[in-house]
Design a protein around this nucleic acid. Structure first.
Lengths: 137, 137
DNA sequence: ATTACATACGTAATATTATAACAATATAAA
DNA sequence: TTTATATTGTTATAATATTACGTATGTAAT
């Protein structure tokens, strides 16, 4: 009856294809491209692009992963309550992508959205940066 | 010596291909896809995707147009001083895209960026909305 | 004017990303 | 069990974007 149990239960509702795609993204932590996922999971029985895209679509819909639009890539969701909103930093030098968690920035964006009376259903924010590691070097 | 003259001067530095692509996007005002642009401009002498993509790349670089990443489309820049930053609302029902101009929202985003000490070089913000027209109907 | 350089051009081929169409199967609900 | 819904597997194809190559053009320095 741990929270772990609940988490497993949730994942059990996923189909085999959905689960192996999610696992790969989870293990990687990085944004992966659909055809890279396909190639990586050939041995697990994924044979066609559609199988990958269908799994990805479903996982995006469930909020378990996000699409990084400007990279045509998919990344695990690190933010349990981000719903369908996404906010990333993308390092222009090394390509590293980080999801911006519920902090001042997303709080602030929510406020701005309210203030501006925008009828927002969801948003996708991509901030291009030079990450700390790259800045040093 | 009007401001119009300056504007023309600027456009004169564009090549033929760049100018006809820019004109199409200007006249349309909507986000257009590369291959739509290609088909539209066949009569003007554009024959290959590469000619379109090269013109688009240059125009993006010059800040005259923007790419709407999640739509794989390109739209005229309505905001003379947006540099390489972009902020759009995209209606989920009718697909209408509007560039958010220098108002409270982008001001606020800039502030948030400063506050959070993010080393931002540029950003791309996509807000999915239900636009006024669609909301009524 | 001539060289050197960068930029842009045209064309063909190809790579990458994503979807359509269809028949079969599994899963959940009535 | 019957019905409805979602998912699967497969083939084919559409849509988006880039590589490679050789040529032409514009610009600036010599």
């Amino acid at each position: 009856m741990s929270s772990n149990h609940t988490h497993n239960k949730k994942n059990q509702t996923l189909t085999k294809n959905q689960r192996i795609v999610l696992n790969l993204l989870q293990d990687s932590g990085e944004p992966l491209k659909a055809y890279f996922i396909l190639n990586s999971l050939k041995k697990e029985g994924l044979n066609s692009p559609l199988q990958v895209y269908r799994a990805l679509d479903k996982l995006v819909e469930l909020g378990k992963i996000h699409k990084v639009e400007s990279l045509n890539s998919f990344i695990i969701c690190n933010n349990s309550n981000c719903a369908s909103n996404t906010a990333f930093t993308i390092c222009e030098r090394c390509g590293k992508v980080k999801e911006i968690k519920n902090n001042n920035l997303t709080e602030g964006v929510n406020e701005l959205v309210r203030e501006n009376k925008l009828n927002i259903t969801r948003y996708n924010l991509e901030f291009y940066v030079v990450c700390k590691t790259c800045k040093i070097n």
